[in-house]
Design a protein around this nucleic acid. Structure first.
Length: 494
RNA sequence: GGUUCCAUGGCCGAGUGGCUAGGCAGAGGUCUGCAAAACCUUUUACGGCGGUUCGAAUCCGCCUGGAACCUCCA
């Protein structure tokens, strides 16, 4: 391993050396989607960012347990008593669990499309109701929660005597209190800041379970504390999620964790930033969100054309996860060309082998440059998963490969050891760490090779008319012929 | 209103006290039957005003502009 991984911890607001509690094991929990509608590109960005975190930790050799939940109950619509999932179920005249299944399936397809690895455990809130009720009991026993009219609330005032509610998002309870709006249905709470662990269900509420407090349903924040504790332990390494979950969701999680077992739960809290459209956050409520399928098909009024999933993944990884990323046709077009360039390189590097027996005077300058670039890839990822910088280094490495392919640089000048290092580095970072893959199937590649055989024959016969015709036809299909001194190959048109 | 963050070249986007990020676009060159691809070279820079420092795009202050959270959101 080259250097040490450092991560920006939202809890301390500092870049810290990553030291697992139980190396080589790493526990990572990421807040997953609420499955009441299609995931949009902003959601995809977050899960892609954590996919790279997961991939890199594994790349470093850690035994990672990645837990990403599915919220299938308890997530309420703003300022109302209505559950997002049950509302959708009523609208579409479905069982709530049909809604859950439908959008869970969709979510999984989208994750696969963008080449995000599956988590090791994907628990659901409804699957952990017993554990949730147990945690509520524990919080009540310890005095951090109280029952009121069939609901159970977390007691912020009590909690604040020993802990500090708001430490993650930098909020003070006095400030929060002074801005609290008067809402209906808050009369059950002792304090407006108290949040629900369990809610009494009104008669029309269709997702309901019978408990000792009456018929009700769980609060949204509880599930994450429960499931992270169950699968990763009371203390684990990484907790991730979007910025917008910092408050109140993660704040409440910390309170629940501390209330039950005296610590924050995760050691490192990582937050991804928002995807924006014309500088404004992409969100469903603002109506500026893009669905993956719209982007891929180009079926959106803001888009000139469609973009492939890997183009979009590349586009996202060209920025740092903690920065906002703005969405535009121009930026996507540039990403499309950039990705194609990298993909063309990837295709070549996968195939290229060191020609045995090649011996030449080593080019020390090239060798030291290549070694430096390889190290830089590690340094970049070690620096809080800087994928943008890593991609920059990969392009520098790609230039060396392209020089090898065109014969401008000789394999023998590098030697097998250096060649193996650059190949391993390029493939490892491009495929394993960044999760970029080719988008053409093998069958298509073979067909191109058949045409290229013809092309080559025509060229040798100096039948330039046929040469030009074949070249033009391939170009129409998005394939360009690479006519090099020593060989002929093809590439995706950029 | 409170809290926090951001402002980089034609565009996107890293960097954060002295060392060429990178991609896209532009210019020139090498290669080529001609091209393309590839490679090499190259132009445009750190919102404004002060301060700290031998030295600041990078640290500090103020100003301007934008965003996020505070209410469901990845």
């Amino acid at each position: 391993m080259i250097g040490k991984l450092r991560v920006v911890n939202s809890l301390t607001k500092e870049k810290e050396v990553f030291e697992p509690l139980n190396s080589p094991h790493v526990g990572m929990y990421v807040c997953g989607p609420t499955v009441y509608s299609d995931v949009h590109l902003g959601n995809v960005r977050t899960f892609t960012s954590f996919d790279v975190v997961y991939r890199y930790l594994k790349f470093l050799g850690y035994k990672v347990r990645y837990v990403r939940n599915i919220t299938d109950v308890g997530h309420l619509l703003d300022n109302s008593e209505e559950d997002k999932i049950s509302k959708k179920a009523k609208l579409e005249n479905l069982e709530p669990m049909e809604v859950v299944q439908k959008y869970t399936n969709d979510f999984h397809r989208v994750m696969e499309l963008f080449n995000n690895l599956d988590p090791d455990i994907e628990p659901t809130a409804t699957g952990h109701l017993i554990e949730q009720l147990q945690m509520i009991d524990e919080l009540v026993e310890k005095g951090y929660a109280y029952e009121s009219n069939g609901s159970v609330y977390f007691d912020i005032e009590k909690y604040n005597k020993e802990y500090s509610y708001g430490k993650l998002s930098g909020r003070k309870t006095e400030d929060l209190l002074s801005q609290t709006r008067e809402l209906d249905g808050q009369s059950d709470k002792r304090n407006p800041l108290d949040f629900a662990l369990w809610k009494n269900a009104s008669p029309e509420h269709i997702m309901r379970w019978k408990t000792k407090w009456g018929v009700g349903f769980p609060g949204w924040h509880l599930e994450c504390s429960v499931m992270s504790t169950k699968y990763l332990g009371e203390q684990f390494d990484i907790h991730g999620g979007g910025m917008d979950l910092k408050f109140p969701h993660h704040e409440c999680e910390i309170a629940q964790n501390a209330g039950t077992h005296g610590n924050d739960g995760a050691k490192y809290w990582l937050h991804t930033n928002m995807l924006t459209v014309n500088g404004t956050k992409m969100s469903k409520s603002l109506g500026n969100s893009f669905l993956p399928k719209e982007l891929i098909a180009g079926d959106h009024e803001m888009l000139d054309r469609g973009y492939s999933p890997m183009t979009i993944r590349f586009f996202m990884l060209q920025s740092h996860y903690a920065s906002t990323l703005d969405f535009s046709n121009e930026a996507l077009n540039a990403a499309q060309k950039g990705y194609t360039k990298l993909a063309n390189g990837l295709r070549y590097v996968q195939e290229v082998a060191y020609p045995e027996g090649t011996q030449e005077a080593p080019d020390e300058k090239q060798i030291s440059q290549i070694k430096k670039i390889c190290e830089n890839c590690h340094h970049a990822m070690n620096d809080d998963f800087n994928t943008a910088l890593t991609i920059g280094h990969l392009f520098n490495l790609l230039k060396k490969f392209n020089s090898l392919q065109t014969g401008q640089l000789q394999f023998g000048q590098l030697g097998k050891e250096v060649f193996d290092q650059m190949k391993t580095t390029f493939l490892g970072f491009t495929q394993d760490v960044l999760g970029l893959r080719l988008e053409l199937d093998l069958k298509g590649e073979k067909l191109v090779d058949v045409v290229l055989t013809e092309y080559k024959a025509a060229k040798e016969a100096k039948d330039y008319e046929k040469v030009d015709a074949l070249r033009a036809e391939l170009k129409q299909l998005g394939i360009v012929v690479k006519d090099m001194k020593n060989q002929i190959d093809w590439a995706f048109e950029e």
